[in-house]
Design a binder for these strands. Structure first.
Lengths: 338, 338
DNA sequence: CTGAAAGCGCTTACAG
DNA sequence: CTGAAAGCGCTTACAG
């Protein structure tokens, strides 16, 4: 079933059918009708691959998170990153490829060279990121969720993590807390230049200065209840006077709450706990439900994908650099200091 | 940069390069070397779209969950369903399309007709499912994660939910529990024939018979802490003698634990709670961490995708029907009845 | 072992 | 307003 079958059935030539398919002008109404009817009765749909070959664009994007094993993705990425990307791509009539296997410089270049993709959306961008360097050098289109150090000419959408730190302390200090502990990403993450790991500590330092507070933090493994538990234990041993703890994930926060319980302290009566990161179900499944500074991964990935498609659709599309502010959602895990 | 450029650089014809690219026999070693070198120096990669047009297969699959809004997907699907599918597809050199928008019969047929996909993996299959009926009628390839009522000639991988119910009661009865409540999916889900909603109640009935227990269950909304809370409240009001509660999601279980706390009962000392569904982080973020009967969505979706690719690769590939048994993982939320 | 020819299904100039 | 011709980049018979 090809365009030729439609042409024959309607008694016209192939180019005429093509014109009608693509809503070009200069087609007689009567012809248009006849062709549309042929299309309908035959149940014809144009061959996507052929259109793409002819059109020169693959109409396909990729989304990439640099992780060792796809098994682990579910602990660092919310489903909404996939659905937001998929929805935006679908609206713009793009396909999307989720890259979950290890990506090498060679295979990344190959995706463009072999016309598998027109552009890519990068997650978990480091300050100095080989993917960014490579794509920039080769002048291949991409968009970041996150950002590197040298942003000249690059489009990104990133979480305003530094601001989130300030707002977290705003909230807690407003409730009268002065002894606030902080559990953040692993030191290793900061050393390799992963944005939030670096910027959360920057924001933390600024918050301490702003409110004249004493430093009291710990770098731990991300996204594990156990690590949150251990880190909080350490923190409490050295600083029994803590009345609040800020964490960077709901899992760490859950661990904190367990550790506090072990020390005979319940949340929020004897200690407040906050989480910076995702909200929704992730925050309310914890008991007590978590007060958060949160972003919508759905919206962020949706917007980044739209940005990518617009960049591809327009010659010399202007660079866009967006910092998304977090939203404070007060649930059950914070209260006034007693 | 096309195959013609490589041919010219190597001083051979285009078909020769093609043969070498596709590892065909009957090429002189010397020629092969020369061409490979040209490919390397030019950085050539074959045009994916062209290969597909020529090859007749799209090498693309789709994954579909019938949900109203993509926003809600993250509360019913684990990220691992995406990563498992993506990983398997990538290994088999397939692309994968995640369909998150509303799918109509027309648009589903169109995906095949317009050569966007070779096959589809269906999630959340109903006993009588329009997608299954339509694809079967049109003889388009597909695989189910889940299963419909008439399975004649259809391949699927499904969770053995009925068995999970029996195993849950095994575990609890083994701990001495006799008064066990059950919170399951909404009545509406059962009415429209969603598999687990139907089969969990079947399994429940069998478990009651097997152990001579009294019926005590409630159908509630899925995957909400609030619904779990409400449902448990109702259950406890009518059956204060309950010593254990079985739920079908970690969210519901979290709600149960909250409701029990409100009634002055802590888990697992005063009441055990189990969840059937996903494990991993989902189970351990709850306090106390949940004893579960769990499946790996990564493995299930991975296997379903491999099954789909094998079905497509082989003429008359034998039908495969797989029921995956759940794994009992004992964590903190169950203990012997006191 | 290698090349000239045809064709996958479509769209875009180019004539008329 | 419509059709004959060329071509997107590749692979597969068909000759040689």
């Amino acid at each position: 079933m090809t365009i030729a079958d439609v042409a024959k059935a309607a008694g016209v030539s192939v180019p005429t059918v093509s014109r009608i398919l693509n809503n070009k002008e200069y087609v007689a109404d009567e012809t248009r009708q006849r062709v549309h009817e042929a299309i309908r009765t035959l149940g014809y749909a144009p061959h996507t691959q052929a259109r793409r070959l002819r059109g020169g664009a693959t109409m396909t994007l990729a989304l990439h998170h640099p992780i060792e094993s796809p098994h682990d993705l579910s602990s660092v990425i919310e489903t909404s990153y996939f659905t937001g990307t998929a929805e935006a791509a679908s609206e713009k009539e793009y396909f999307i490829n989720f890259l979950v296997s290890r990506l090498t410089p060679e295979s990344l270049l190959n995706m463009y060279r072999s016309n598998q993709i027109d552009g890519i959306i990068l997650l978990q961008v480091r300050l100095d990121d080989w993917r960014v360097n490579l794509l920039r050098e080769n002048n291949y289109p991409f968009v970041m969720i996150g950002r590197c150090a040298d942003l000249e000419g690059l489009s990104f959408i990133d979480l305003d993590f530094e601001n989130a730190m300030l707002l977290a302390f705003d909230h807690l200090v407003g409730l009268g807390h002065r002894n606030i502990g902080f559990l953040t990403y692993p030191e290793a993450w900061r050393k390799v230049g992963i944005g939030p790991a670096v910027r959360s500590l920057d924001g933390y330092t600024r918050a301490l200065n702003q409110y004249g507070l004493r430093s009291c933090y710990r770098e731990i493994g991300l996204n594990s209840v156990e690590e949150g538990f251990e880190g909080t234990n350490d923190l409490l041993q050295e600083n029994p006077e803590l009345t609040a703890i800020v964490t960077v994930s709901h899992l760490t926060a859950a661990g904190s709450i367990k550790a506090l319980a072990l020390h005979g302290r319940s949340v929020p009566q004897d200690c407040s706990v906050m989480a910076i990161g995702f909200g929704g179900n992730f925050a309310s499944v914890v008991t007590p439900s978590l007060t958060t500074l949160e972003w919508s991964p759905y919206e962020i990935s949706y917007n980044a994908t739209i940005l990518m498609t617009e960049t591809l659709a327009t010659v010399q599309f202007p660079v866009q650099q967006v910092l998304v502010p977090p939203k404070l959602v007060i649930r059950e895990s914070t209260k006034e200091v007693s």
